[in-house]
Amino acid sequence: MAKKQLYYEDVEVGTEVTPLAKVATTQMLVKWAGGSGDFNPLHFEDSFAASQGVDSPIVHGALKRAWLGHLMTDWIGDGGFLKKLACQYRGMDYPRKMKTITDPQEGETWWCRGTVTKKYVEDDQHIVECDIWVENAKGEKTTPGSATVVLPFKKAKS
């Protein structure tokens, strides 16, 4: 399954990063807690979340950052390299609850998106900078950020 490679020449300022849909579920939060080692009860216990002033358990900020990482690694392909990823956890996101062992209830879908803000060559690297963000179902950017990537250059192929 060869993936399509993105090249430096393929992008311009304003080019859209291919959007990525994500559904946060309580199950995903459990998996993320296990993987990341973040066992803060803020992300799984109602009463503790309430004591922290967030109503009910919220999606881990780092999980949303990880989604943005997925957005970028998918977009830049195997030949690209993610140099920098930054984001801010501005808005709370609440996971969907599970309906069955495998399927979530109906509800919110999040979108990871981005646009190219800058492209330049530095130290022989073809660098592209992007504004990136996670937006909720209302279109609010709960997790705005930025990414810097290195892309392969077509003319260097020969």
Binding site: G53, A62, R65, L82, K84, L85, A86, Q88, Y89, G145
Partner: peptide, 15 residues
């Protein structure tokens, strides 16, 4: 008493 993650910035130098 309350704490939240505000944001992260990660610079990657090697795979």
């Amino acid at each position: 008493p309350r704490a939240l993650a505000g944001g992260d910035e990660v610079e990657y130098l090697k795979p």
